[in-house]
Amino acid sequence: MFGAFRTTSSLGGGLLWKIPWRLSPHQKYRHRQRLRAVDKVVETVANALAKKGETLKAVERWQAEMPTEAEMLPKDKYTIFDRKEKKYRKGIHKLPKWTRVSQRVNPPGY
Protein backbone atom coordinates (compact mmCIF):
# COMPACT_ATOMS: atom_id res chain seq x y z
CA MET A 1 0.00 0.00 0.00
CA PHE A 2 2.90 2.36 0.75
CA GLY A 3 6.49 2.57 -0.44
CA ALA A 4 8.08 1.86 -3.79
CA PHE A 5 5.67 -0.92 -4.75
CA ARG A 6 2.44 0.85 -4.10
CA THR A 7 -0.08 0.63 -6.90
CA THR A 8 -0.95 4.04 -8.20
CA SER A 9 -2.29 4.63 -11.67
CA SER A 10 0.98 6.17 -12.84
CA LEU A 11 3.16 3.30 -11.57
CA GLY A 12 0.72 0.63 -12.70
CA GLY A 13 0.05 1.79 -16.20
CA GLY A 14 3.22 3.68 -17.15
CA LEU A 15 2.43 6.93 -18.87
CA LEU A 16 -0.38 8.86 -17.28
CA TRP A 17 -1.22 12.40 -18.21
CA LYS A 18 -3.76 14.26 -16.23
CA ILE A 19 -5.62 17.19 -17.68
CA PRO A 20 -7.39 19.23 -14.99
CA TRP A 21 -11.13 19.36 -15.47
CA ARG A 22 -11.29 23.15 -15.54
CA LEU A 23 -9.16 26.02 -16.78
CA SER A 24 -7.29 28.26 -14.38
CA PRO A 25 -8.19 31.98 -14.39
CA HIS A 26 -4.89 32.74 -16.11
CA GLN A 27 -5.51 30.16 -18.81
CA LYS A 28 -8.90 31.74 -19.37
CA TYR A 29 -7.29 35.17 -19.60
CA ARG A 30 -4.75 34.02 -22.19
CA HIS A 31 -7.48 32.24 -24.10
CA ARG A 32 -9.47 35.51 -24.33
CA GLN A 33 -6.35 37.29 -25.58
CA ARG A 34 -5.96 34.67 -28.31
CA LEU A 35 -9.61 35.00 -29.33
CA ARG A 36 -9.16 38.76 -29.57
CA ALA A 37 -5.99 38.37 -31.63
CA VAL A 38 -7.89 36.28 -34.18
CA ASP A 39 -10.72 38.85 -34.24
CA LYS A 40 -8.14 41.54 -34.91
CA VAL A 41 -6.59 39.65 -37.83
CA VAL A 42 -9.99 39.14 -39.47
CA GLU A 43 -10.88 42.78 -38.92
CA THR A 44 -7.59 43.99 -40.43
CA VAL A 45 -8.04 41.78 -43.49
CA ALA A 46 -11.68 42.83 -43.93
CA ASN A 47 -10.84 46.55 -43.63
CA ALA A 48 -7.90 46.31 -46.02
CA LEU A 49 -10.03 44.56 -48.64
CA ALA A 50 -12.96 46.95 -48.13
CA LYS A 51 -10.64 49.88 -48.85
CA LYS A 52 -9.85 48.32 -52.23
CA GLY A 53 -13.51 47.53 -52.81
CA GLU A 54 -12.92 43.78 -52.72
CA THR A 55 -14.80 41.12 -50.80
CA LEU A 56 -13.79 37.64 -49.77
CA LYS A 57 -16.11 34.73 -49.13
CA ALA A 58 -14.01 33.39 -46.26
CA VAL A 59 -14.15 36.73 -44.44
CA GLU A 60 -17.88 37.21 -45.04
CA ARG A 61 -18.65 33.73 -43.84
CA TRP A 62 -16.54 34.19 -40.71
CA GLN A 63 -18.24 37.46 -39.88
CA ALA A 64 -21.69 35.98 -40.47
CA GLU A 65 -21.18 32.79 -38.47
CA MET A 66 -18.57 33.43 -35.82
CA PRO A 67 -19.24 35.63 -32.79
CA THR A 68 -16.43 37.93 -31.67
CA GLU A 69 -14.80 37.48 -28.30
CA ALA A 70 -17.05 40.16 -26.75
CA GLU A 71 -20.20 38.59 -28.17
CA MET A 72 -19.43 35.08 -26.96
CA LEU A 73 -21.01 33.63 -23.86
CA PRO A 74 -18.58 32.46 -21.17
CA LYS A 75 -20.08 29.00 -21.61
CA ASP A 76 -18.96 28.90 -25.24
CA LYS A 77 -15.63 30.54 -24.54
CA TYR A 78 -14.40 28.04 -21.98
CA THR A 79 -16.35 24.86 -22.70
CA ILE A 80 -17.18 22.75 -25.70
CA PHE A 81 -20.04 20.41 -26.53
CA ASP A 82 -19.33 16.72 -26.11
CA ARG A 83 -22.07 14.10 -26.38
CA LYS A 84 -20.24 11.69 -24.10
CA GLU A 85 -19.95 14.06 -21.13
CA LYS A 86 -22.34 14.56 -18.27
CA LYS A 87 -24.39 17.67 -19.08
CA TYR A 88 -22.83 17.53 -22.59
CA ARG A 89 -19.98 19.95 -21.82
CA LYS A 90 -16.26 19.66 -21.23
CA GLY A 91 -13.46 22.20 -20.87
CA ILE A 92 -12.20 23.69 -24.12
CA HIS A 93 -8.66 22.73 -23.10
CA LYS A 94 -9.54 19.10 -23.81
CA LEU A 95 -9.74 19.97 -27.49
CA PRO A 96 -6.54 18.94 -29.31
CA LYS A 97 -4.42 21.99 -30.29
CA TRP A 98 -6.99 24.15 -28.55
CA THR A 99 -4.74 27.22 -28.49
CA ARG A 100 -4.37 27.19 -32.27
CA VAL A 101 -7.81 26.29 -33.57
CA SER A 102 -11.00 28.32 -33.71
CA GLN A 103 -13.81 26.65 -31.79
CA ARG A 104 -16.51 29.22 -31.08
CA VAL A 105 -19.93 27.80 -31.87
CA ASN A 106 -21.69 24.78 -30.41
CA PRO A 107 -24.86 22.90 -31.35
CA PRO A 108 -27.95 25.00 -30.70
CA GLY A 109 -29.72 24.06 -27.50
CA TYR A 110 -26.63 22.61 -25.82
Binding site: V41, A48, L56
Partner: peptide, 21 residues
Protein backbone atom coordinates in the same frame (compact mmCIF):
# COMPACT_ATOMS: atom_id res chain seq x y z
CA UNK B 1 0.04 43.06 -51.44
CA UNK B 2 -3.55 43.56 -50.30
CA UNK B 3 -5.33 41.21 -52.65
CA UNK B 4 -8.05 38.60 -52.17
CA UNK B 5 -5.68 35.71 -52.84
CA UNK B 6 -3.35 36.71 -50.00
CA UNK B 7 -6.28 37.60 -47.77
CA UNK B 8 -7.62 34.08 -48.29
CA UNK B 9 -4.25 32.60 -47.31
CA UNK B 10 -4.19 34.74 -44.17
CA UNK B 11 -7.69 33.56 -43.27
CA UNK B 12 -6.44 29.97 -43.41
CA UNK B 13 -3.75 30.65 -40.80
CA UNK B 14 -5.37 33.49 -38.83
CA UNK B 15 -4.74 31.76 -35.50
CA UNK B 16 -1.00 31.64 -36.14
CA UNK B 17 -0.17 35.05 -37.56
CA UNK B 18 -0.38 38.72 -36.70
CA UNK B 19 -1.35 41.00 -39.54
CA UNK B 20 -1.02 44.74 -40.11
CA UNK B 21 -1.87 46.79 -43.15
Amino acid sequence: PVEPQFAGMIMKVKELVRVDE
